[in-house]
Design a protein around this nucleic acid. Structure first.
Lengths: 216, 216
DNA sequence: GGGTGTGAAGCCGTTCACAGCA
DNA sequence: TGCTGTGAACGGCTTCACACCC
């Protein structure tokens, strides 16, 4: 539907919706772009530009109707039915992620977990049953899963990603510290914690130096 | 030191270094830009451009000397001594992150954890002692901490971030589903899992539709 | 021949600026 | 008056293209 929407825009739309539903007093009917901008930490122009792709129109004296914006964003980012997600790698991180999402978001649910350790198979973690990785294709097909979370050690990541792809997963959020090679039709978002920390360290230090220089 | 380096470049440099140290046979001495590019999943031009900021020069017949590149990147992204990191919020996610980094990266270590739950104070998680949040300033000063990980619920995130900032933390990796408001001198990188999943769902679906249309 | 270093071009996302409107 | 919608300008990152070198 419609033209290509950039990754950044999709990310911000997802945020707009969440903050509008979770962080705005429920009796509010309308928001101005500058209010939403302050909430999210972007410029008002940015908000208006993003909302253009939703087809919502604001009113100069009232702003944007919140329910309309929320629904329109849902029409873009949500699957027609709920988005069922599979998680592979029920280690500490996997367990934390399952617990984190447990009933948290209305349109998003981790419905199955997978591992290869015998001790974990058949156990239920935060309400999610852990299957053997060999059952991946079957469960993915049964449950209509299109999105997967990869939370295995770096060495196993590519092999597991390959299995996810052949099972029919189309979007992967990858927490393994390794770039993945997948077909063009599959979307991967790698979340690299070590990179994030090194970046935070670097810019923190750099800002401190700049501030020190300006002060001294 | 030198001109501004973009966030994307810093992130890639961090990745280059890690893959060069972890994913390349130790007897290799040199790499070509196209090899490193394939490893990381970027273009060779990108690699050469990034390496320019390190001051390393490659040789047309051999490529880049690996040790030289690794050291040069270290000179940019590493702190002069090891980067000590504090983690606030010893819930499931916090516990997983502590375990994840335990001895994993040579220049990066979570040296202290903080929470407010009495049951957690004084306990040791994966070798990391958990303090009460009230001790934050003291421990941050003592251990020379400049980087923090925020793994608390969204509602507490801003208040905890304020305390981290006033304790002297300069870079924050934020896992709470909430944008943070901090002074300009502090760097924040927010990792929003729900946004990542919604994006993976959206692009997965879109790619599938595009492929279906092309095929059908 | 094949790879590097880098100015120039291209592309894409953000911001500006302003007409239009409540 | 103040906000929206949007063409146009801007800026930054990526890619191209090619001289230079081994």
């Amino acid at each position: 539907m419609a033209e290509r929407i950039s990754e950044k825009t999709i990310g911000r739309l997802s945020l707009y919706r969440r903050l509008l539903t979770d962080n705005v007093e429920p009796e509010r009917r309308f928001v101005f772009s500058h209010e939403l901008a302050a909430l999210v930490g972007v410029t008002p122009s940015q908000v208006r530009r993003d909302l253009m792709v939703t087809g919502c129109y604001g009113n100069p004296s009232r702003g944007y109707r919140i329910t309309e914006v929320v629904d329109a964003i849902g029409g873009i980012v949500d699957d027609s039915d709920r988005q069922n997600v599979a998680l592979v790698g029920m280690g500490k991180l996997g367990g934390a992620l399952v617990g984190y999402f447990r009933g948290r978001r209305p349109n998003l649910e981790i419905v199955a977990a997978f591992d290869v350790a015998a001790a974990k198979i058949g156990r239920v973690y935060s309400g999610v049953l852990c299957y053997h990785l060999d059952a991946l294709s079957e469960v993915v097909a049964e449950r209509g899963i299109h999105t997967g979370i990869l939370a295995v050690p770096g060495g196993a990541a590519q092999a597991v990603a390959d299995r996810m792809v052949s099972a029919g997963v189309l979007g992967i959020v990858n927490f393994a510290p390794a770039p993945l090679r997948v077909p063009e039709t599959v979307y991967v978002e790698t979340i690299d914690l070590a990179v994030a920390l090194e970046r935070a360290g670097f810019y923190g230090r750099q800002n401190a130096e700049a501030a020190g220089k300006a002060a001294g």
